[in-house]
């Protein structure tokens, strides 16, 4: 049986790979808790903008780039999934 939470995590990982052109990385290589920016996966500020745009397009939600907690939402795949779920429910 598929777990909606796991499905969303996997979709987000695939979105990260596709939107950011991570040629040599697959969904299995990204851990739910792995830091996305700087350390961990090693994404940078242009990636943050690109990923924000991709998430807004895919899930039809608005992201305020200046909001204080936006940085926390983009920590890892698990926090991103929680953020997307909360926004979609709102």
């Amino acid at each position: 049986m598929s777990d909606p939470q796991q499905d969303l995590n996997r979709d987000l990982k695939q979105l990260i790979i596709d939107a950011l052109g991570l040629e040599d990385i697959s969904v299995q290589d990204i851990d739910d808790q792995q830091t996305l920016f700087g350390e961990g996966l090693g994404l940078d500020s242009v990636d943050a903008l690109e990923l924000g745009l991709a998430i807004q397009k895919r899930y039809g939600i608005k992201i305020d780039a200046d909001a204080k907690d936006t940085r926390n939402h983009f920590s890892n795949v698990a926090t991103l999934a929680a953020f997307v779920t909360a926004r979609q429910a709102a």
């Binding site: 950011l20 242009v46 990636d47 903008l49 690109e50 745009l53 807004q56 397009k57």
Partner: peptide, 9 residues
């Protein structure tokens, strides 16, 4: 449509 930041930069 919004512009891709990567493409733009």
């Amino acid at each position: 449509q919004p512009l891709s930041p990567t493409q733009f930069s």
